[in-house]
Measured scan of single mutants.
Amino acid sequence: EWSVQQVSHWLMSLNLEQYVSEFSAQNITGEQLLQLDGNKLKALGMTASQDRAVVKKKLKEMK
């Protein structure tokens, strides 16, 4: 059960800090993070497919 802050730290740990402000603005918590798919990541401004791939891979490892 991650807070928005913990999601931000997680993104930073993946060197994806450029997305922290948008994820925070949308109040993405750990629970919501686990529901994100490629389209939702795109909607959050994650347009680079490599970045989405990293996030999806890491989320899969956490589930």
Rank of each mutant, 00 (worst) to 15 (best):
E1F: 15
E1A: 10
E1Q: 14
W2C: 00
W2T: 02
W2K: 08
W2P: 05
S3V: 01
S3G: 11
S3L: 00
S3M: 00
S3F: 07
V4W: 05
V4Q: 07
V4K: 11
V4N: 10
Q5P: 06
Q5C: 11
Q5V: 11
Q5Y: 09
Q6F: 01
Q6P: 00
Q6N: 03
Q6D: 07
Q6R: 06
Q6W: 00
Q6K: 05
V7Y: 04
V7M: 01
V7F: 01
V7E: 01
V7Q: 00
S8Y: 05
S8F: 01
S8C: 14
S8M: 11
S8I: 09
S8H: 06
H9C: 14
H9F: 10
H9Q: 15
H9E: 15
W10M: 06
W10D: 04
W10R: 05
W10T: 05
W10E: 04
W10Y: 05
W10V: 00
L11R: 00
L11T: 01
L11Y: 00
L11N: 04
L11Q: 02
M12F: 02
M12P: 01
M12G: 11
S13E: 15
S13Q: 14
S13P: 01
S13F: 03
L14E: 07
L14Q: 07
L14S: 04
N15P: 00
N15M: 01
N15Y: 01
N15T: 03
N15C: 00
L16Y: 01
L16A: 06
L16W: 02
E17D: 15
E17A: 13
E17R: 08
E17T: 14
E17W: 00
Q18E: 10
Q18A: 11
Q18F: 01
Q18S: 12
Y19K: 10
Y19A: 07
Y19Q: 09
Y19I: 07
Y19D: 09
Y19R: 07
V20L: 07
V20F: 05
V20E: 08
S21R: 14
S21C: 10
S21G: 13
E22D: 07
E22Y: 01
E22H: 09
E22R: 11
F23C: 04
F23R: 06
F23A: 08
F23H: 04
F23Y: 04
S24F: 09
S24V: 15
A25Q: 13
A25V: 08
A25I: 08
A25F: 06
A25R: 15
A25D: 11
Q26W: 01
Q26I: 05
Q26M: 06
Q26Y: 00
Q26K: 12
Q26C: 05
Q26H: 14
N27K: 14
N27F: 03
N27V: 02
I28N: 02
I28R: 02
T29I: 04
T29K: 04
T29D: 15
T29C: 04
T29R: 07
T29V: 02
G30N: 00
G30L: 06
G30Q: 02
G30M: 09
G30H: 06
E31Y: 08
E31N: 01
E31V: 08
E31P: 08
Q32T: 10
Q32C: 08
Q32L: 11
Q32G: 06
Q32W: 01
Q32F: 00
L33I: 07
L33G: 05
L33A: 05
L34M: 13
L34Y: 08
L34F: 06
L34I: 10
L34G: 06
Q35S: 12
Q35K: 14
Q35N: 15
L36W: 01
L36V: 08
L36K: 05
L36D: 08
D37G: 02
D37R: 03
D37H: 04
D37E: 07
D37K: 06
D37T: 11
G38P: 08
G38D: 15
G38A: 13
G38L: 04
G38I: 11
G38E: 15
N39Y: 09
N39P: 15
N39G: 11
N39E: 15
K40Q: 12
L41W: 02
L41C: 04
L41H: 02
L41Q: 05
L41G: 03
L41A: 03
K42D: 10
K42T: 13
K42F: 06
K42L: 09
A43S: 13
A43D: 14
A43M: 10
A43G: 10
A43P: 03
L44Q: 04
L44Y: 04
L44P: 05
L44I: 05
G45Q: 01
G45C: 01
G45N: 02
G45P: 00
G45F: 00
G45L: 03
M46S: 05
M46H: 08
M46K: 02
M46F: 04
T47V: 13
T47W: 09
T47S: 12
T47I: 11
T47G: 08
A48P: 09
A48V: 11
A48G: 11
A48H: 14
A48Y: 06
A48E: 15
A48K: 15
A48C: 15
S49H: 15
S49G: 12
S49R: 14
S49L: 10
S49F: 07
S49C: 09
Q50T: 10
Q50R: 14
Q50W: 07
Q50E: 15
D51N: 01
D51C: 00
D51K: 02
D51M: 02
D51A: 04
R52F: 05
R52M: 07
R52E: 04
R52P: 02
R52T: 06
A53Y: 12
A53V: 08
A53L: 11
A53F: 08
V54E: 08
V54S: 08
V54T: 10
V54W: 09
V54L: 15
V54C: 05
V55H: 01
V55N: 04
V55C: 06
V55W: 01
V55R: 00
V55P: 02
V55E: 02
V55G: 01
V55L: 13
K56A: 12
K56P: 01
K56E: 14
K56C: 14
K56H: 13
K56Y: 12
K57F: 01
K57G: 13
K58G: 12
K58I: 03
K58H: 13
K58T: 08
L59R: 04
L59I: 15
L59G: 03
L59T: 00
L59Q: 04
K60R: 13
K60N: 12
K60W: 09
K60H: 10
K60C: 12
K60M: 14
K60T: 10
K60E: 15
K60I: 09
E61R: 07
E61H: 03
E61D: 08
E61V: 06
E61M: 07
E61W: 05
M62L: 15
M62D: 05
M62W: 07
M62Y: 09
K63S: 11
K63V: 11
K63C: 14
K63R: 14
K63W: 07
